[in-house]
Design a protein around this nucleic acid. Structure first.
Length: 112
DNA sequence: GTTCTGACTGCGA
DNA sequence: GTCGCAGCCAGAA
């Protein structure tokens, strides 16, 4: 089959995140074959409101919510993560060391 | 075709 | 722990 576009690969990487897990923008971008394209991931998410896309599992490299605290999306993301068993405290995700290591937690091994 | 903006990242203070 | 600055890239107008 044909090669997917950057956006398609990014969405695929996000959908690959298992329930109860989270990933960083940089990790998603790298997993999609686009290292350093974290901003592209953020942009795509802001433009696409796909209900089937677990965008709420995408966090910053610090393990925090990307959006400013008090935003509608921020509140909803926190609520969804908690619903999946992910503890979110003051806009920060607990239970994970850092979003930079989720790659091994999710896919079990570094990308090929 | 050019210009602007951005749900980012890393580093230093 | 927080704050600011600069770099990078791609999509949208």
């Amino acid at each position: 089959m044909a090669e997917l576009s950057a956006a398609d690969r990014i969405f695929a990487a996000i959908r690959a995140i298992p329930r109860g897990q989270v990933a960083g923008y940089g990790e998603i971008a790298r997993r999609a074959g686009l290292p350093g394209r974290a901003r592209l991931v953020a942009r795509l998410l802001s433009e696409n409101s796909d209900p089937r896309l677990p965008w709420h599992r995408v966090l910053r490299s610090d393990g925090r919510i990307a959006m400013p605290d008090g935003s509608k999306g921020h509140a909803e993301q926190t609520r969804r993560l908690r619903a999946e068993g992910v503890w979110v405290e003051n806009g920060r995700v607990r239970g994970l060391k850092a979003a930079a290591t989720v790659d091994e937690q999710i896919w079990g091994m570094p990308p090929e």
